[in-house]
Amino acid sequence: MSTLTILAGGALALFAVGLYGLLITRNMIKVVVALQILVKAALLALVVAGKASDQINLGQSLAMTVIVADTVVAVIGLALAVQVKRVLGTMDLTELSKLRG
């Protein structure tokens, strides 16, 4: 098994972990963490893809850009978490499922 295949498998595994986390967690912080795992999987996949198509530089520069964008999203997510805690007094997602129907 080549390194690339292993890395690709790793990306897929990370991706599955991230999605699984989003499916089960009820904590706001854990949601942000799961999102991060999800995006890290995508980062890994981009680097692997760059390598696979013999354009490692391209893959890496894409990854750098994604990290920047992703950080902003993470910051916003965390800021919302702080605000949720402040307004609702809890991080529990069950308190955040009032809008239904």
């Binding site: 999605l19 989003l22 499916l23 949601v31 997602l93 955040l96 499922s97 239904r100 129907g101």
Partner: peptide, 17 residues
């Protein structure tokens, strides 16, 4: 059908998957 909009984030992500 309205009961499918549960308001739960986990459920929403499940919709995507």
């Amino acid at each position: 059908l309205r009961t499918t909009q549960t308001g739960s984030l986990n459920w929403n992500v499940f919709g995507i998957i």
